[in-house]
Design a protein around this nucleic acid. Structure first.
Lengths: 238, 238
DNA sequence: GCCTCGTACCTGTATAGACAAGTAACGGCC
DNA sequence: GGCCGTTACTTGTCTATACAGGTACGAGGC
């Protein structure tokens, strides 16, 4: 973990295979030496060869089929993950001052559209919050959130100047799953004013649903000024 | 892999730990039973306990420190990956017809801005392509791409009706790294017309840089209609 | 009080050996 | 020809054992 053991022979095995893939000796779809081949060729135990191949398979470099063999994976540079981070962490990690303004707190009854997103019946009670997150004086995110009080009770009693809604939720309701969607749009006037946007400025919307105990715990719409916010990621395939 | 062996005792170990985390018996930061504890409690070999804990650590549920112990990770629901996929695959996987129109192919000299993105000198030669990708008749992506011919030669001779630029590049130049940025904006008129957008329709822009042999191989701006395109991801923490 | 050393414990890694289960190919039987 | 079982090979998993290197902590010396 922190300090790799001197030998690390499974790394030798990984490199042995990776080098052949990189050099083109082994091409996509072709069969990789079996664990027993590697035992003979590199004088390692089978468990070590197994670990090396298993890790390469987990990384997506190889594909293993029980009873058949191990193969070079088709190059899938297709799926590139982008990270959606906690806004307070993100601002602070840039060394800027973070501030939040509570715009509204309320409990309300689900409209048809909200009920659909929550997979509940229309009219079900929901908690509601509207927060604006500031980076050094400028609004960077408007967070409009709805919470199912049946799943995460006590939401409205939370002090949002101390705890972000997201932090509160993962404390109260064990998070099972999250669902994200990213869109670009011209925001309605209400959002535009909260984000201090020009009339012709686009807005990056991240819609997040979190699930707890099989039910939708919360639905959040995160609006960001298109001119000041972007999602970024660096990916190293392999 | 495809069919788990009947026993799968390392799964018992994983569940043994996960259940305690889910139940709150083990909280964030607390120490989980050591490998030797699990050997005694569950009557498995240490290698099996090791595998279980190692996998949970790889999933981000636990944190392991050599010589100290294994601990429940702080709930980091902060980093949520979103996937950027190959547009042709994406359209076909939805069962729709994919079509591409080549708008322009050219070689040109780098402007100051382009040179910056390529980390080259102004005036360096670049290959250029402008493609529009259609999903069943409607434009879904305008792909404006610049390629460094020094890194990936022969780009302009590629038949883009058969191969996407991305596919060509990973064939010609081994991909080392990719860098993505997502923005929302109101597009200039040229892009708006290619995407058949209304004047007040926002646009989701994915900027991608790919690196090969330590140099920028290609820079791509992928424009999508805000009304018809979104990025999505489902994440299961644990 | 402070430093040092020894000890106990923890994880990281490697090995050899074993059985289970899936797959493919070959050969024999009908 | 078509079907079926044997056989060889593959990965998946488990066990027992071993050594290395890191950390924490207490005992003892200064």
């Amino acid at each position: 973990m922190s300090s790799p053991q001197p030998s690390a022979r499974y790394l030798q095995v990984k490199h042995y295979v990776l080098d052949q893939v990189a050099a083109g000796t082994l091409r996509a779809g072709e069969r990789v030496p079996s664990e027993n081949d590697l035992v003979r060729e590199l004088r390692v135990s089978r468990m070590t060869a197994n670990r090396a191949l298993k890790e390469l398979a987990a990384d997506g470099v190889l594909v293993r089929v029980a009873g058949v063999g191990t193969f070079v994976a088709e190059p899938r540079v297709h799926a590139h993950p982008l990270e959606v981070r906690n806004i307070a962490d993100e601002i602070r990690s840039r060394g800027h001052e973070y501030r939040v303004r509570v715009g509204a707190l309320a409990s309300l009854l689900a409209s048809r559209e909200l009920a659909e997103r929550f997979e509940l019946k229309t009219g079900a009670p929901l908690d509601y919050s509207l927060l604006t997150h500031f980076e050094g004086g400028l609004p960077l995110q408007v967070e409009e959130r709805y919470v199912n009080p049946q799943v995460a009770p006590g939401y409205l009693r939370c002090d949002f100047t101390q705890t972000t809604p997201h932090e509160f939720l993962i404390k109260v309701a064990p998070l099972q799953r999250a669902e994200h969607t990213v869109r670009a749009l011209l925001p309605e006037r209400r959002i535009r004013r909260l984000l201090k946007l020009e009339a012709d400025e686009a807005c990056l919307l991240i819609m997040r649903r979190t699930f707890s105990r099989g039910r939708v715990a919360s639905v959040a719409d995160l609006y960001h000024p298109g001119s000041r916010y972007e999602l970024a990621a660096n990916i190293q395939p392999r």
